[in-house]
Protein backbone atom coordinates (compact mmCIF):
# COMPACT_ATOMS: atom_id res chain seq x y z
CA UNK A 1 0.00 0.00 0.00
CA UNK A 2 2.78 2.40 0.93
CA UNK A 3 4.43 1.58 -2.36
CA UNK A 4 1.34 2.55 -4.35
CA UNK A 5 0.88 5.75 -2.33
CA UNK A 6 4.46 6.74 -2.98
CA UNK A 7 4.05 6.07 -6.67
CA UNK A 8 0.86 8.12 -6.67
CA UNK A 9 2.73 10.97 -5.00
CA UNK A 10 5.45 10.76 -7.63
CA UNK A 11 2.79 10.77 -10.34
CA UNK A 12 1.13 13.91 -8.98
CA UNK A 13 4.47 15.65 -8.68
CA UNK A 14 5.53 14.94 -12.27
CA UNK A 15 2.05 15.79 -13.53
CA UNK A 16 2.25 19.14 -11.80
CA UNK A 17 5.73 19.74 -13.25
CA UNK A 18 4.53 18.96 -16.76
CA UNK A 19 1.52 21.26 -16.42
CA UNK A 20 3.66 24.08 -15.07
CA UNK A 21 6.23 23.72 -17.82
CA UNK A 22 3.45 23.84 -20.37
CA UNK A 23 2.24 27.05 -18.76
CA UNK A 24 5.65 28.65 -18.44
CA UNK A 25 7.15 27.98 -21.88
CA UNK A 26 5.11 30.45 -23.99
CA UNK A 27 5.47 33.05 -21.23
CA UNK A 28 9.24 32.75 -21.34
CA UNK A 29 9.33 33.39 -25.07
CA UNK A 30 10.61 36.85 -25.99
CA UNK A 31 8.30 39.45 -27.55
CA UNK A 32 4.67 38.66 -28.29
CA UNK A 33 4.54 35.00 -29.38
CA UNK A 34 0.85 35.29 -30.18
CA UNK A 35 1.40 38.03 -32.72
CA UNK A 36 4.41 36.21 -34.15
CA UNK A 37 2.35 33.11 -34.76
CA UNK A 38 -0.64 34.90 -36.12
CA UNK A 39 1.67 36.68 -38.53
CA UNK A 40 2.27 33.37 -40.28
CA UNK A 41 -1.40 33.21 -41.23
CA UNK A 42 -0.96 36.44 -43.16
CA UNK A 43 -4.08 38.10 -41.79
CA UNK A 44 -6.24 35.00 -42.24
CA UNK A 45 -7.06 34.90 -38.57
CA UNK A 46 -9.72 36.90 -36.81
CA UNK A 47 -8.92 39.33 -33.97
CA UNK A 48 -10.86 36.97 -31.71
CA UNK A 49 -8.40 34.18 -32.40
CA UNK A 50 -5.52 36.52 -31.70
CA UNK A 51 -7.10 37.47 -28.42
CA UNK A 52 -7.61 33.82 -27.42
CA UNK A 53 -3.98 33.13 -28.15
CA UNK A 54 -2.83 36.15 -26.20
CA UNK A 55 -4.87 35.09 -23.21
CA UNK A 56 -3.42 31.62 -23.49
CA UNK A 57 0.13 32.87 -23.72
CA UNK A 58 -0.35 35.51 -21.08
CA UNK A 59 0.56 38.55 -23.18
CA UNK A 60 -1.35 41.83 -23.32
CA UNK A 61 -3.26 40.92 -20.20
CA UNK A 62 -3.54 42.81 -16.96
CA UNK A 63 -3.88 39.70 -14.82
CA UNK A 64 -0.94 38.75 -12.63
CA UNK A 65 1.03 35.60 -13.47
CA UNK A 66 -0.33 33.94 -10.35
CA UNK A 67 -3.94 34.46 -11.28
CA UNK A 68 -3.17 33.43 -14.87
CA UNK A 69 -1.62 30.25 -13.51
CA UNK A 70 -4.68 29.35 -11.51
CA UNK A 71 -7.09 30.07 -14.30
CA UNK A 72 -4.84 27.93 -16.54
CA UNK A 73 -5.05 25.05 -14.09
CA UNK A 74 -8.81 25.48 -13.96
CA UNK A 75 -8.98 25.44 -17.76
CA UNK A 76 -6.94 22.26 -17.96
CA UNK A 77 -9.06 20.58 -15.31
CA UNK A 78 -12.24 21.46 -17.19
CA UNK A 79 -10.80 20.51 -20.59
CA UNK A 80 -10.84 24.08 -21.86
CA UNK A 81 -7.80 24.34 -24.11
CA UNK A 82 -8.89 27.30 -26.18
CA UNK A 83 -9.70 27.50 -29.87
CA UNK A 84 -7.91 25.77 -32.68
CA UNK A 85 -6.29 28.06 -35.23
CA UNK A 86 -6.35 25.70 -38.17
CA UNK A 87 -9.87 24.39 -37.53
CA UNK A 88 -11.23 27.72 -36.31
CA UNK A 89 -13.70 28.03 -34.65
CA UNK A 90 -13.64 24.42 -33.36
CA UNK A 91 -12.38 24.19 -29.81
CA UNK A 92 -9.18 22.28 -29.13
CA UNK A 93 -10.99 20.24 -26.48
CA UNK A 94 -13.54 19.06 -29.02
CA UNK A 95 -10.88 17.97 -31.55
CA UNK A 96 -8.89 16.20 -28.88
CA UNK A 97 -11.85 14.28 -27.54
CA UNK A 98 -12.61 12.90 -31.00
CA UNK A 99 -8.96 12.14 -31.67
CA UNK A 100 -8.57 10.29 -28.35
CA UNK A 101 -11.58 8.14 -29.17
CA UNK A 102 -10.18 6.98 -32.50
CA UNK A 103 -6.63 6.52 -31.28
CA UNK A 104 -7.57 4.59 -28.17
CA UNK A 105 -9.85 2.41 -30.26
CA UNK A 106 -7.28 1.67 -32.93
CA UNK A 107 -3.81 2.00 -31.40
CA UNK A 108 -4.76 1.29 -27.79
CA UNK A 109 -6.63 -1.88 -28.62
CA UNK A 110 -3.95 -3.19 -30.97
CA UNK A 111 -1.21 -2.44 -28.42
CA UNK A 112 -3.06 -4.42 -25.77
CA UNK A 113 -3.82 -7.25 -28.20
CA UNK A 114 -0.22 -7.36 -29.43
CA UNK A 115 1.00 -7.60 -25.83
CA UNK A 116 -1.48 -10.32 -24.87
CA UNK A 117 -0.97 -12.48 -27.96
CA UNK A 118 2.76 -11.83 -28.15
CA UNK A 119 3.19 -12.80 -24.51
CA UNK A 120 1.08 -15.94 -24.89
CA UNK A 121 2.99 -17.04 -27.98
CA UNK A 122 6.27 -16.32 -26.18
CA UNK A 123 5.19 -18.40 -23.18
CA UNK A 124 4.14 -21.40 -25.24
CA UNK A 125 7.16 -21.08 -27.52
CA UNK A 126 9.58 -21.13 -24.61
CA UNK A 127 7.68 -23.99 -22.97
CA UNK A 128 7.91 -26.12 -26.10
CA UNK A 129 11.42 -25.00 -26.78
CA UNK A 130 12.70 -26.31 -30.08
CA UNK A 131 9.17 -27.22 -31.18
CA UNK A 132 7.48 -26.07 -34.37
CA UNK A 133 6.13 -22.85 -32.87
CA UNK A 134 9.48 -22.01 -31.35
CA UNK A 135 11.46 -22.65 -34.52
CA UNK A 136 9.14 -20.76 -36.87
CA UNK A 137 8.04 -17.79 -34.77
CA UNK A 138 11.28 -16.08 -33.74
CA UNK A 139 12.83 -15.65 -37.22
CA UNK A 140 9.52 -14.60 -38.73
CA UNK A 141 8.89 -11.99 -36.08
CA UNK A 142 12.42 -10.71 -36.04
CA UNK A 143 11.79 -9.76 -39.66
CA UNK A 144 8.33 -8.26 -39.11
CA UNK A 145 9.50 -6.21 -36.17
CA UNK A 146 12.14 -4.43 -38.22
CA UNK A 147 9.78 -3.69 -41.13
CA UNK A 148 8.85 0.02 -40.95
CA UNK A 149 5.14 0.07 -40.26
CA UNK A 150 4.27 2.88 -42.65
CA UNK A 151 5.88 0.84 -45.41
CA UNK A 152 3.88 -2.25 -44.49
CA UNK A 153 0.80 -0.02 -44.32
CA UNK A 154 1.40 1.27 -47.83
CA UNK A 155 1.90 -2.26 -49.17
CA UNK A 156 -1.33 -3.45 -47.55
CA UNK A 157 -3.20 -0.45 -48.94
CA UNK A 158 -1.87 -1.23 -52.37
CA UNK A 159 -2.87 -4.90 -52.25
CA UNK A 160 -6.12 -5.01 -50.29
CA UNK A 161 -7.36 -1.48 -50.96
CA UNK A 162 -6.29 -0.27 -54.37
CA UNK A 163 -5.91 -3.57 -56.24
CA UNK A 164 -8.43 -5.94 -54.64
CA UNK A 165 -10.92 -3.36 -53.29
CA UNK A 166 -11.56 -5.61 -50.32
CA UNK A 167 -11.17 -3.06 -47.58
CA UNK A 168 -11.40 0.71 -47.18
CA UNK A 169 -8.17 2.45 -46.33
CA UNK A 170 -9.00 6.13 -45.90
CA UNK A 171 -10.42 7.76 -42.78
CA UNK A 172 -11.86 5.99 -39.76
CA UNK A 173 -15.35 5.64 -41.26
CA UNK A 174 -17.13 6.34 -44.56
CA UNK A 175 -18.05 9.97 -45.13
CA UNK A 176 -21.40 8.80 -46.42
CA UNK A 177 -22.26 7.13 -43.14
CA UNK A 178 -23.81 8.95 -40.20
CA UNK A 179 -21.93 8.32 -36.97
CA UNK A 180 -24.05 6.60 -34.34
CA UNK A 181 -24.58 3.36 -32.54
CA UNK A 182 -26.03 1.53 -35.49
CA UNK A 183 -24.90 -1.88 -36.61
CA UNK A 184 -23.97 -0.70 -40.06
CA UNK A 185 -21.85 2.15 -38.71
CA UNK A 186 -19.99 -0.09 -36.27
CA UNK A 187 -19.32 -2.58 -39.05
CA UNK A 188 -18.07 0.29 -41.18
CA UNK A 189 -15.68 1.40 -38.42
CA UNK A 190 -14.37 -2.13 -37.98
CA UNK A 191 -13.73 -2.46 -41.70
CA UNK A 192 -11.81 0.79 -41.72
CA UNK A 193 -9.76 -0.34 -38.72
CA UNK A 194 -8.71 -3.72 -40.11
CA UNK A 195 -5.79 -2.60 -42.30
CA UNK A 196 -4.19 -0.11 -39.87
CA UNK A 197 -4.76 -2.47 -36.92
CA UNK A 198 -3.20 -5.36 -38.78
CA UNK A 199 -0.24 -3.18 -39.74
CA UNK A 200 0.36 -2.20 -36.11
CA UNK A 201 -0.21 -5.72 -34.79
CA UNK A 202 2.23 -7.36 -37.17
CA UNK A 203 4.98 -4.85 -36.57
CA UNK A 204 4.70 -4.72 -32.77
CA UNK A 205 3.83 -8.30 -31.76
CA UNK A 206 7.31 -9.63 -32.61
CA UNK A 207 9.00 -7.65 -29.86
CA UNK A 208 6.61 -9.05 -27.25
CA UNK A 209 7.05 -12.60 -28.49
CA UNK A 210 10.82 -12.38 -28.38
CA UNK A 211 11.14 -10.63 -25.02
CA UNK A 212 8.64 -12.95 -23.35
CA UNK A 213 10.25 -16.02 -24.87
CA UNK A 214 13.65 -14.97 -23.57
CA UNK A 215 12.61 -14.10 -20.02
CA UNK A 216 10.49 -17.26 -19.97
CA UNK A 217 13.45 -19.44 -20.94
CA UNK A 218 15.51 -17.94 -18.12
CA UNK A 219 12.67 -18.45 -15.66
CA UNK A 220 12.09 -22.04 -16.74
CA UNK A 221 15.61 -22.87 -15.57
CA UNK A 222 14.84 -21.51 -12.10
CA UNK A 223 14.68 -23.83 -9.16
CA UNK A 224 11.09 -23.08 -8.26
CA UNK A 225 9.98 -24.35 -11.66
CA UNK A 226 11.82 -27.63 -11.05
CA UNK A 227 10.25 -27.65 -7.62
CA UNK A 228 6.79 -27.21 -9.15
CA UNK A 229 7.47 -30.24 -11.34
CA UNK A 230 8.62 -32.21 -8.31
CA UNK A 231 5.34 -31.39 -6.60
CA UNK A 232 3.48 -33.01 -9.46
CA UNK A 233 1.65 -29.90 -10.62
CA UNK A 234 0.01 -29.93 -14.02
CA UNK A 235 1.95 -28.49 -16.95
CA UNK A 236 -0.57 -25.66 -17.27
CA UNK A 237 -0.09 -24.61 -13.68
CA UNK A 238 3.70 -24.78 -13.89
CA UNK A 239 3.75 -22.87 -17.16
CA UNK A 240 1.45 -20.02 -16.10
CA UNK A 241 1.41 -19.88 -12.31
CA UNK A 242 5.05 -20.58 -11.63
CA UNK A 243 7.03 -19.65 -14.76
CA UNK A 244 5.05 -17.04 -16.72
CA UNK A 245 3.82 -15.25 -13.59
CA UNK A 246 7.45 -14.48 -12.76
CA UNK A 247 8.72 -14.05 -16.30
CA UNK A 248 6.18 -11.36 -17.16
CA UNK A 249 7.24 -9.00 -14.36
CA UNK A 250 10.19 -7.38 -16.16
CA UNK A 251 8.04 -6.89 -19.29
CA UNK A 252 5.32 -4.89 -17.55
CA UNK A 253 7.31 -1.67 -17.61
CA UNK A 254 7.94 -1.98 -21.34
CA UNK A 255 4.25 -2.60 -21.90
CA UNK A 256 3.36 0.45 -19.83
CA UNK A 257 5.72 2.60 -21.83
CA UNK A 258 4.22 1.48 -25.12
CA UNK A 259 0.72 2.06 -23.72
CA UNK A 260 1.84 5.54 -22.72
CA UNK A 261 3.05 6.25 -26.20
CA UNK A 262 -0.17 4.96 -27.76
CA UNK A 263 -1.54 8.48 -27.86
CA UNK A 264 1.42 9.85 -29.75
CA UNK A 265 3.21 6.87 -31.14
CA UNK A 266 1.33 5.87 -34.23
CA UNK A 267 1.64 9.13 -36.13
CA UNK A 268 2.75 7.51 -39.35
CA UNK A 269 0.08 4.82 -39.39
CA UNK A 270 -2.61 7.40 -38.76
CA UNK A 271 -1.07 9.57 -41.45
CA UNK A 272 -0.81 6.77 -44.01
CA UNK A 273 -4.40 5.66 -43.41
CA UNK A 274 -5.68 9.19 -42.92
CA UNK A 275 -7.04 7.96 -39.62
CA UNK A 276 -8.12 10.98 -37.59
CA UNK A 277 -6.53 10.15 -34.27
CA UNK A 278 -4.11 11.97 -32.00
CA UNK A 279 -1.10 11.32 -34.22
CA UNK A 280 -2.91 12.58 -37.28
CA UNK A 281 -3.89 15.80 -35.53
CA UNK A 282 -0.47 16.28 -34.05
CA UNK A 283 1.04 16.19 -37.50
CA UNK A 284 -1.66 18.53 -38.80
CA UNK A 285 -1.12 20.93 -35.92
CA UNK A 286 2.61 21.05 -36.54
CA UNK A 287 2.14 21.58 -40.27
CA UNK A 288 -0.38 24.39 -39.73
CA UNK A 289 1.34 26.13 -36.79
CA UNK A 290 -1.77 25.44 -34.74
CA UNK A 291 -0.12 26.16 -31.39
CA UNK A 292 -3.10 25.77 -29.08
CA UNK A 293 -3.81 22.34 -30.51
CA UNK A 294 -0.16 21.35 -30.49
CA UNK A 295 0.30 22.40 -26.89
CA UNK A 296 -2.75 20.52 -25.73
CA UNK A 297 -1.69 17.40 -27.63
CA UNK A 298 1.79 17.44 -26.15
CA UNK A 299 0.31 17.84 -22.70
CA UNK A 300 -2.04 14.95 -23.43
CA UNK A 301 0.79 12.68 -24.53
CA UNK A 302 2.85 13.54 -21.44
CA UNK A 303 -0.06 12.81 -19.15
CA UNK A 304 -0.72 9.53 -20.97
CA UNK A 305 2.84 8.37 -20.40
CA UNK A 306 2.64 9.32 -16.72
CA UNK A 307 -0.67 7.51 -16.27
CA UNK A 308 0.71 4.42 -17.98
CA UNK A 309 3.75 4.36 -15.71
CA UNK A 310 1.50 4.71 -12.68
CA UNK A 311 -0.66 1.83 -13.89
CA UNK A 312 2.35 -0.39 -14.47
CA UNK A 313 3.60 0.39 -10.97
CA UNK A 314 0.26 -0.60 -9.54
CA UNK A 315 0.16 -3.77 -11.65
CA UNK A 316 3.68 -4.68 -10.53
CA UNK A 317 2.69 -4.12 -6.91
CA UNK A 318 -0.26 -6.45 -7.37
CA UNK A 319 1.75 -9.14 -9.13
CA UNK A 320 5.02 -8.96 -7.20
CA UNK A 321 4.89 -9.08 -3.40
CA UNK A 322 8.53 -8.02 -3.18
CA UNK A 323 7.83 -4.53 -4.56
CA UNK A 324 4.94 -4.14 -2.14
CA UNK A 325 7.29 -4.59 0.78
CA UNK A 326 10.12 -2.56 -0.66
CA UNK A 327 8.03 0.50 0.32
Amino acid sequence: MRFVLRRLGFFLLTLWAALTLNFALPRLMPGNPAVAMIAKFKGGVSPQALHTLEVQFGVNTRHSVISQYFSYLKDVATGNFGTSLSEYPASVGHIIMQAIFWTLGLVGLTTVLAFIFGTLIGIVGAWRRGGVLDSVMPPVFVITSVVPYFWLGLVLILIFGVKLHWLPYINSYSYTDTPGFTLSFIWDVIQHAILPAFTLLITTIGTWILTMRNTMITTLADDYVRMARAKGLSSRRIMFDYAARNAILPNLTGFAMSLGFVLGGAILVEYVFNYQGVGFWLLAAVNNDDYPLMQALFLLITVAVLVAILLSDIATAILDPRTRDAG
Partner: peptide
Protein backbone atom coordinates in the same frame (compact mmCIF):
# COMPACT_ATOMS: atom_id res chain seq x y z
CA UNK B 1 2.32 -36.96 -11.24
CA UNK B 2 0.72 -39.69 -9.13
CA UNK B 3 4.06 -40.60 -7.53
CA UNK B 4 5.41 -37.12 -7.13
CA UNK B 5 5.18 -35.51 -3.72
CA UNK B 6 2.76 -38.15 -2.39
CA UNK B 7 5.42 -40.87 -2.44
CA UNK B 8 8.60 -39.03 -3.31
CA UNK B 9 9.36 -35.44 -2.39
CA UNK B 10 12.39 -33.26 -2.86
CA UNK B 11 14.11 -30.58 -0.80
CA UNK B 12 16.34 -28.62 -3.11
CA UNK B 13 19.84 -27.30 -2.55
CA UNK B 14 18.89 -23.62 -2.71
CA UNK B 15 15.84 -22.88 -0.60
CA UNK B 16 16.36 -19.26 -1.62
CA UNK B 17 15.36 -20.00 -5.19
CA UNK B 18 13.23 -23.09 -4.79
CA UNK B 19 10.20 -21.21 -3.52
CA UNK B 20 8.09 -19.25 -5.97
CA UNK B 21 8.78 -15.59 -5.06
CA UNK B 22 5.32 -14.34 -6.04
Amino acid sequence: IAIRWKDLSVVMQSAMNALNPV
